[in-house]
Amino acid sequence: MTDGRPHITVEMLSNPVYLSGARQLVSSVAQRLGFDEMACSQIALAVDEALCNVIRHGYDRAVDRPIWLSLWPVEEGKGGLRIVIEDEAKQVDLDAIKGRKLEDVRPGGLGVHIIREVMDEVKYERREGAGMRLTLVKRVPMTAGPKVTPKCERGCDG
């Protein structure tokens, strides 16, 4: 099931010091869902870049605004991870969210490119009322080992 109640939701402040915690959470969950070490690192990178964009562009670097990070397992195929990042930041024109040309080497502007490169699905939306919602999906490659389901492997009472 990929809709309905998230399996994990974290509300965090828009303070960059908490980025490492968000990365560790996402990476740990991705690992449990069957992604290899490199994929876990890159999924965490995509989430980090998305959170940075919210902090930098959405909240103009204010460190006390809310961001919600929600995770669901994807059950189709070999499985995967669906991540939703929501905020109350200013709403932006969806057509304006695009990565820049990489031939133009200069500092900054790489976040959206990295997110699109790493994730299988990337969808930006305006939330009703205020803020933005970013949905990211990464599927476990079909060449990976057996599917891992988010169930307690040794029984949940021990």
Binding site: R23, E49, V105, P107, G108, L110, G111
Partner: peptide
């Protein structure tokens, strides 16, 4: 162990 695009930007600069 980890670098994001802000690290890349620092090194490009």
């Amino acid at each position: 162990d980890y670098m994001d695009s802000s690290g890349l930007a620092t090194l490009v600069e």
